[in-house]
Design a protein around this nucleic acid. Structure first.
Lengths: 195, 195
DNA sequence: CGGATCGTTGATCAACTTCAACGGTCGTGG
DNA sequence: CCACGACCGTTGAAGTTGATCAACGATCCG
């Protein structure tokens, strides 16, 4: 199965496509392959593409004044990645995106994104639904971060990411949860004693 | 100016409308007026509508196990409010929405939302763009919450909400920032000494 | 084999919370 | 119209959670 099949399946979960539309979509994307540790995007660069992940695993993060990495999102098969703010406005990105595992991507540029949504209005609908779901997820994450202590956020993360949790090093999970690696280590220790 | 003019202006900042489309949109919304302290939505209710704020001021929040209110969003003229997760899935809401000031709203039900986006595809585009911007905002907020201490988050909040800041009581701002009211009081004290 | 990186553990530290008390203001009912 | 209660913001003192700094063992990879 090549990358476009993954993308078409993803789109057709939300809207149905004619052969012509599939063809139109096809012509607006560019494949890209990334080796482990390679960057898709660096801070202060402008984010020129949105990336659909066909296979592999990536992380989106930013680095604070103290040099600490804060992961905002993991992306694997079926996820979209970009620095949205930079992609939409053309200002410099505050984020990095790089590959935790070798990854196969489909890229769409800003111009092609505009062109595609105008040419295939169903893509407005597809992205509308995609973004709807993304907002629900982000709202829950924000809510959890103010409501629950680190230990419960970890348990929720394990719960809702069973498929990929063993592909992600522990210090990356700590970064995603917004805690120090040492804290996560202690949390796991406590949890394992408790049962 | 009645509420629909506010809504139409908001939509036409993103897509152009024909008279027919304005008419279609008009028929999918219901006006609603809310007095200060009245609820638009309570926890464990299903969120049946998305609300567009024509005037007034509201807050969206949830209450944790300790009974503490956590505000996730203030909404005034030009904002959309709902418990998105509940609205889309029909599960019970985890959020409350109530009025800080008397408010005039336009409501759209789930069925009308579906019907309207199918009848007027430009509305898919409108919401797609709306949600894009919402995601950018939520991502920045999440990034700030892990990157910066409370005092800097407060300064950024003041900076980017000058128009309405004096309409919001201080304990609500503390709740939005995810800190105790006492902490915000101390932060303001320090800042005022510093200059 | 050797260096780098990762996870763990201990000790100390900082940010923010919690609990408690007090003064000011606002709105309401007598 | 005034008085009272409720609520809000402030200040102080003590308590918690998680961060930071440091050291060490294990593993991975060249």
């Amino acid at each position: 199965m090549n990358g476009f099949e993954v993308l078409f399946r993803h789109i057709e979960q939300k809207v149905s496509l004619t052969d012509q539309e599939r063809e139109d979509i096809y012509r607006h994307f560019t494949p890209k392959f990334l080796l482990k540790k390679q960057y898709l995007l660096s801070e202060s660069e402008v984010c020129r593409h949105m990336a659909f992940v066909c296979s592999g695993l990536l992380k989106t993060y930013h680095i604070d004044e103290k040099g600490i990495e804060h992961i905002s999102l993991f992306g694997w098969e079926g996820w979209w990645l970009s620095d949205f703010s930079s992609f939409l406005t053309g200002i410099a990105s505050v984020s990095y995106i790089d590959a935790i595992e070798d990854a196969s991507l489909l890229l769409i540029s800003r111009e092609n994104y505009e062109a595609l949504t105008l040419r295939v209005p169903k893509m407005d609908r597809y992205f509308r639904i995609l973004y709807q779901n993304s907002i629900v997820t982000k709202e829950r994450r924000l809510r959890n971060s103010v409501t629950y202590p680190a230990s419960e956020r970890y348990l929720e993360f394990v719960e809702s990411n069973q498929q990929i949790i063993d592909r992600i090093p522990q210090n990356f999970i700590a970064s995603y949860l917004g805690i120090a690696p040492e804290t996560l280590s202690r949390i796991k220790h406590k949890i394992s004693k408790r049962q």
